[in-house]
Write a protein that binds this DNA or RNA. Structure first.
Lengths: 153, 153
DNA sequence: TTCAATGCAAATATTTTGCAATTCG
DNA sequence: CGAATTGCAAAATATTTGCATTGAA
């Protein structure tokens, strides 16, 4: 089972990564991993829980939180910030990519960022700050939601 | 009293804006406005509360939340998202500017963004999304914290 | 004088922690 | 078998709401 954007990752690799870091492969973790890796949308813990519980009814919300914590620690997922919600996650893609997010449904795609190196250099000179990291995130409406919005009108 | 970056705004203007929108000018609001407009750092509601209470001891935390809500609604302040904290605010500056934030102390400066128009055009073509908005935010260490870190070592 | 605004207390919502039972390796 | 993991319940956080009192206009 590969992830939604052909990012080259699949749940077996994620489970292997967990194993390699000394974590056990439990059914609860498999359920959470499957949900996150296969989602086209950004998901919040409660959403992961609802979906994963269908595959693994014994699942507890606490385990979702704890599994997310480990996946984030291993760099397999990353937190996405949106205006009113900063506890959503997506599968990480290799390299420094940026997110384009649908504000209607949470569907996301990665895009290659501009080379902002020159900008950073000039900002460091102007401000005296040493830059460490940056976020570039774009919000919009995905094709599916455009279609649906058109249908409604 | 003007704000920390000579943004051209002062607390009287903010109070006038509140008044113009039908809100009353209370001592509690003056205290909150003064704190936010004069802060060099991004502040969370609880921090605003602690500082503003010194000027106006009767202040309640709830009033801070409610005042922040109104200031945001009027576009006088904007919410800042950071890795583990998305309920911090800064005075808004005119135009589309981006934030450079110190990860140590929360000090911030605005910088003029690149023109990302071309990027948006090409992304819309590639993905089928219609873009609406974007965040570009840089994290780093401010000159003051660089100094302090140097002193410690 | 009137009604918006306040501040307390209580209610919500979200995330974390303690712990006994379970399960992976 | 032993230790990591789980899931429940309870605790801790953060934010919002209800309401009687206060105070701006």
């Amino acid at each position: 089972m590969t992830c939604n954007q052909d990012c080259g990752k699949n749940s077996q690799e994620w489970m292997a990564a967990l194993r390699a870091n000394g974590y056990r492969l439990t059914d609860a973790r498999k359920a959470v991993v499957d949900v996150v890796i296969n989602s086209r949308e950004v998901l919040r813990p409660a959403e992961v829980f609802e979906i994963a519980k269908k595959k693994y009814p014994k699942l507890g919300l606490v385990t979702v939180y704890r599994t997310i914590e480990k996946l984030e620690e291993l760099g397999l997922i990353q937190r996405v910030h949106r205006e009113q919600d900063c506890q959503a996650f997506v599968a990480t893609r290799a390299g420094h990519n940026h997110l384009l997010l649908c504000t209607e449904c949470g569907r996301y795609v990665y895009f290659e960022g501009e080379d902002l190196g020159d900008l950073f250099t000039s900002i460091e000179k102007d401000t005296g700050y040493v830059t460490q990291d940056h976020w570039l995130q774009i919000f919009g409406i995905c094709p599916v939601c455009q279609q649906e919005m058109g249908d409604d009108q």
